[in-house]
């Protein structure tokens, strides 16, 4: 099982530490050749504009699109924006998921929040909700095509979606010590 983490910018080391804690030693990806032999890739939180520009500058857009056609990719926050086909403004996107996202949908940093969300698809996810941390977070405004809704917050807004082996979350499982989302992704990678 070879999992990579896109390490152009953002909290890639937080993902790295959680992956290690569940027995997976990931590699860091900054250039296209580093995608070789990977079974799955995580795109971390960070600034989506920065990650997008660096991906363009180092010719990663096409290789990532190709990779995502066959392999699992999980984007958290900025990573979710990058996976989408529409971010409601002009910035580089991978166009791998049929989701429309709205950046900074809750407002500025002062509006960032944490909340427990029941997540039936995770192990014991009904009785033990997942603690979700939202930081200047995007929301998934709509899903279409083959994308489906995984999680919503109490007001009904979508904060996680899946399309085949691609996974997008508005929040940051890597900022908690709960490893269930990372385990879910590892299983997805194997499927």
């Amino acid at each position: 099982m070879n999992i990579g983490i896109l390490a152009l910018q953002g909290d890639f080391l937080e993902h790295f530490v959680i992956m290690q804690s569940i027995g997976v030693v990931p590699s860091l990806v900054r250039l296209p050749k580093e995608l070789e032999n990977l079974d799955g890739l995580i795109i971390p939180g960070g600034e989506s504009t920065t990650i997008g520009k660096l991906a363009v500058a180092y010719h990663l857009i096409e290789p990532l699109r190709e990779f995502g056609k066959e392999h699992a990719i999980w984007g958290t926050c900025a990573g979710a924006i990058f996976l989408s086909k529409d971010a409601m403004r002009d910035q580089p996107l991978l166009n791998l998921m049929d989701i429309q996202v709205e950046r900074n949908a809750f407002g500025r940093q002062v509006d960032s929040f944490e909340i427990d969300l029941p997540a039936p698809f995770l192990e014991r996810g009904e009785e033990h909700p997942f603690h979700a941390v939202f930081i200047r977070a995007p929301i998934i405004k709509s899903v279409s095509g083959e994308a489906s809704v995984l999680l919503t917050i109490p007001d009904g807004r979508i904060v996680a979606a899946q399309q085949g082996k691609c996974l997008a979350t508005s929040f940051h499982p890597e900022l908690t010590s709960d490893t269930r989302f990372h385990q879910y992704f590892v299983e997805l990678t194997k499927s």
């Binding site: 390490a7 910018q9 909290d11 960070g46 940093q109 929040f113 200047r136």
Partner: peptide, 17 residues
């Protein structure tokens, strides 16, 4: 809202930048 985790968390998103 405004927990230390969230305050610290934004800085974590800026890393490598």
């Amino acid at each position: 809202v405004a927990t230390f985790k969230i305050k610290k968390g934004l800085a974590q998103m800026l890393k490598g930048g």
